[in-house]
Amino acid sequence: MRPLRIGIVAGEASGDILGAGLIQALQQRYPQAEFEGIAGELMQAQGCTVLYPLERLSVMGLVEVLGRLPELLRARKRLVRHFIDNPPDVFIGIDAPDFTLGMERALKQAGIPTVHYVSPSVWAWKRKRIFKIKQSTDLLLTLFPFEAEVYAPTQQNLRFVGHPLADIIPAQLDMAAVQAHQRPADGAPLVALLPGSRGSEIKYLARPFLQTARWLQQQRPELVFILPAANARRHAQLEALIRDEFADLNLRLVLQQSREVMAAADAILIASGTATLEACLLRKPMVVAYRMAGLTYRIYSRMIKSRWISLPNVLADEEMVPEVLQDRVTPEVMGPLVLRALEDQSYRRRLQRVFGIIGEQLRQNASERAAEAVQELLEARRAGN
C-alpha cells in the first residue's frame, strides 16, 4: 500500500505552528505519511516538503497584497494544478483564507477531500463567507467554541478542536525562572508594553504606548516598564525611538521573550491581536489598543459587526478588558485604564477567574483533536460514505 499523501498549506508563522502540531499528530496515526505544500521552518522540521516558500505568502496590508497579487495568484494556480495532477488523499489549508479557500474549492471540485484549519473571523465581518466555506471544504476545524453557531445555516461539517496556545500556556513556562529573570529586583510593579510586531503597528502605537508609560511614571514613579521587540529590526527601531525621545523612562527593552514578559507583568498595554489571547491565557489584566491609517480604519470600522475587537472580550462575551481605538489612543485615555488594571484588586480577581474559565474551555489538546477529525474524514471517504 502506498504511503498516505497529504497536501498542506500554511499562510503565515502562526499557521506554521498549527501545521507542525497537526503533522506531528497525524504522523502518530500514519507513520509513513508524506506531507507537501507551503511550510515554514517548524513544518519542515516535521518532514513537510516545500513547494513554495511560506515567507512569500505572508503579506499584510491592503497595499502590500495588491502589489503582490499577480505573484500570489500564479502561485495558487500552480499549486492547484500540482495537486490535481498528483491528487493527495486529503488537502489541508491552514488559516490565510483569501489564499487557501480558493485552493480548497478547486480541489474539492476535483474530488479531493479538503480541510480548513482555523475559521475566518466570520463572527466579526463578512458573515456571508460561510457559504463560500461550505462550498470549499469538507471539514472545518475551529479554535473557539462559539464559532459553531455561526455556521449553523450551512450545516457545515465542523469540529471544535480548541486552541494550541491553551495547551502550552502556561504549562510551557517555568514561572519561577520567568519571575527571577524579568521582575525588578526590588519587587516594583511591572508594566509590559506590547505595541505589536508589524511595521505599521510600531508606526502607530509605539510612541503613544511610550507616552502612556511616561504619564504612568509621573503618577507612580516606582513603576518599571518592559518592552519586548519581536525581532532585531524592531529592536533597532524601538531602541532609536527610546534613545531619542524616552530616555527618561524606567524602561527595559528586550529582544523577543514576549510571552515571558507578559507572564511576569502586573499589567499589560497591548496591541489587538493574537498576543491578547496569550495574555488572557496567562490571566493578565490588560488594556487593548489599536490604531491604523485613517482611511483604512473608516473602511474596516464599517465592515466589522462584532461588539469587540479583542479575543478576551469576544471569548468572555462581555467587556473584560478596555479597548482603545484610533483617536482615543492617547496617554490621557490609556494611562488611567492601566492604573485601574494595576490597582483595582476586585477587578483583577474577577478577570483572573473569567480568564481561567476561558483557558479551560480552549485547552482541548488541539493538535490531537484536529488529527482525529482528519482521520475520521479519511476513513469515511475510504468507506465510501
Rank of each mutant, 00 (worst) to 15 (best):
F99T: 02
P208W: 00
V161H: 06
F91P: 01
K128R: 15
D167M: 11
T100R: 01
D167Y: 09
V118I: 15
Q179N: 12
W123Y: 09
R198T: 10
A192T: 12
L205N: 03
P120M: 02
R127G: 05
A166D: 05
V191Y: 03
M103L: 14
Q219V: 07
R207F: 02
F91A: 06
W125M: 13
R214I: 07
Q219R: 15
A171H: 10
F144A: 07
G196V: 08
D95R: 01
Q109Y: 03
P189H: 11
I112Y: 02
Y151C: 00
P189E: 14
I169P: 03
A96Q: 06
T142E: 01
A171C: 08
T100V: 12
Q135I: 04
A176C: 08
T114M: 06
P195C: 13
I130G: 00
V178A: 03
I168R: 14
N157W: 02
K128H: 15
L194A: 09
P145D: 10
R159S: 06
Q219P: 07
L216N: 03
D186S: 12
H181W: 08
Y204F: 15
Q156E: 00
L216I: 10
E147Y: 03
G199R: 14
H116Q: 09
L107Y: 11
L190I: 15
A110Y: 08
V150S: 00
R159C: 03
A148W: 00
A213P: 13
H116K: 04
F144D: 04
G102E: 04
Q211I: 05
P145V: 09
T137E: 00
L107T: 10
I133V: 10
G93K: 01
N157C: 08
A166H: 05
A152S: 11
F209Y: 14
R129K: 12
S121A: 11
L140D: 00
A185C: 03
T154P: 00
Q182W: 15
T114E: 05
V115M: 08
K134W: 12
D98I: 11
I169K: 00
L158V: 04
P145L: 13
K134H: 14
T137Y: 00
R183L: 10
V122L: 11
G93T: 06
A106I: 06
A166T: 06
A180D: 13
L139A: 04
P113K: 03
H116N: 08
